[in-house]
Computed example of a mutant assay.
Amino acid sequence: MPSPKVDPVVLSDEERSVLAGWSRRRKTSQALALRSRIVLRCADGGTIGEVAEAVGVSRNMVSKWRSRFLAERLDGLSDEPRPGRPRTITDDDIEQVITKTLESTPGEDTHWSTRSMASATGMSQSAVSRIWRAFGLKPHAIETWKLSTDPLFVDKVRDVVGLYMSPPENALVLAVDEKSQMQAIDRTAPILPVMPTTPARMTHDYVRHGTTSLFAALDLSSGSVIAQHYRRHRHQEFLRFLKLIDAAVPKDLDLHLVLDNYATHKTPKVKEWLIRHPRFHLHFTPTSSSWLNLVERWFAELTNRKLRRSAHRSVTELEADVRAWINTWNEDPKPFVWTKTADQILDTLAAYCQRITDSRH
């Protein structure tokens, strides 16, 4: 028997334009693009059977989306909300968790845990955890920080960064510091090697066998290092290291040394020696600003690649091991390139100071 009469699909110019766009756009969901093509075919006069065959879907699907469009127009082509469990955590609940996290502590504890916050708000621990993750809150974590109070902070930053980014001609820039109190420590049991599915393992306890100090001067242009171990850390050792640098660097080069404000760098004996050796120029980093001395970056390499996972039964063994590592480094040195200008550093610090001022802490 003949099919029942169906209402024709008549599109306005705006609807046809929107549907055509939906059907062609790559980022439109495939389901929406298919429904748009069904409606466009129906609007062009095709029967339900013809449209189903042309688009490659069932007659029931064509009939469903044709009817939905006639009833609700463009809005009818979107998926209807699916039934599910109603939301149990309101915006006010979320605000309560965030406010408590940022503005209070749980009794005598120093910070909230998911358990204590769940108890205080009546939520589950998983709900508290989801809220904290969504807003990037980590009450359990803490980081250290310190701002320099050096009255000449700006001038010193500009001086040191200027050396890094535009070194003087016919001169060598050296970042100098001491890694003091390097411990020769041995584990109470042998370190177990890496195995499939098992990382290397070592005991948490150790035996100390003495300490040494490593004086190092990092050449910013090449990345090579002048280094020497000393058992003590006084101005006498610093003077001996300056003499070592003087002997190692060609006499026709000026020497610009970036140093921290340690007292041994400024004793009368050191100043007298510097007067007699005018090619040495000392540039001091601001107080509490070790991050500005590039040799600290090299010390981090030494720690991560050699010291952290090694064991030594004597100071002599430690010094020999570190010396061998430095010799290998100097065979193929890697310079550290400073990229931030003094203005960028100062702008970042100014913005941070403004943030902590606005937070009223």
Score class of each variant (00 low, 15 high):
2 P>N: 10
3 S>V: 08
5 K>I: 13
5 K>A: 06
8 P>E: 11
8 P>N: 09
8 P>S: 11
8 P>K: 14
9 V>N: 06
10 V>C: 05
13 D>W: 08
16 R>D: 03
16 R>G: 09
18 V>D: 07
18 V>W: 09
19 L>R: 04
19 L>W: 00
20 A>F: 07
24 R>H: 08
26 R>Y: 05
27 K>T: 13
31 A>T: 14
33 A>I: 09
39 V>M: 08
40 L>V: 03
44 D>N: 13
44 D>L: 13
47 T>D: 05
48 I>S: 11
52 A>F: 10
56 G>K: 05
59 R>A: 10
60 N>W: 11
73 R>A: 07
75 D>A: 15
77 L>N: 04
78 S>I: 06
79 D>F: 02
83 P>I: 14
83 P>Y: 14
83 P>N: 14
90 T>C: 03
91 D>Q: 13
98 I>C: 08
100 K>P: 07
104 S>I: 06
107 G>M: 06
109 D>S: 13
113 S>Q: 04
116 S>L: 14
119 S>T: 15
122 G>H: 06
130 R>I: 04
132 W>S: 00
134 A>T: 15
144 T>W: 15
156 K>G: 02
157 V>A: 02
159 D>M: 08
164 Y>I: 00
174 L>S: 00
175 A>Q: 04
175 A>Y: 01
177 D>S: 02
181 Q>V: 10
181 Q>E: 15
181 Q>I: 09
187 R>N: 12
190 P>D: 06
191 I>Q: 12
192 L>E: 15
192 L>D: 13
197 T>C: 11
198 T>C: 12
200 A>M: 15
201 R>H: 11
202 M>F: 15
206 Y>D: 01
212 T>Y: 03
213 S>D: 05
218 L>F: 12
218 L>H: 03
219 D>E: 08
219 D>I: 02
237 E>K: 07
239 L>A: 04
241 F>N: 00
244 L>W: 00
246 D>V: 01
247 A>R: 14
248 A>G: 00
256 H>F: 02
261 N>G: 13
272 E>W: 08
275 I>V: 15
275 I>C: 05
278 P>A: 08
284 F>M: 06
289 S>N: 05
290 S>G: 05
296 E>P: 01
297 R>G: 11
299 F>K: 03
301 E>Q: 14
303 T>D: 14
304 N>A: 13
305 R>V: 02
308 R>D: 13
310 S>A: 15
311 A>H: 04
313 R>A: 11
314 S>V: 04
316 T>C: 10
317 E>N: 03
320 A>G: 12
320 A>H: 09
323 R>S: 14
327 N>M: 13
331 E>G: 15
332 D>W: 03
332 D>M: 10
332 D>V: 12
332 D>K: 14
334 K>Y: 02
334 K>Q: 12
335 P>Y: 04
351 A>V: 06
352 Y>R: 14
357 T>S: 11
359 S>I: 09
359 S>D: 10
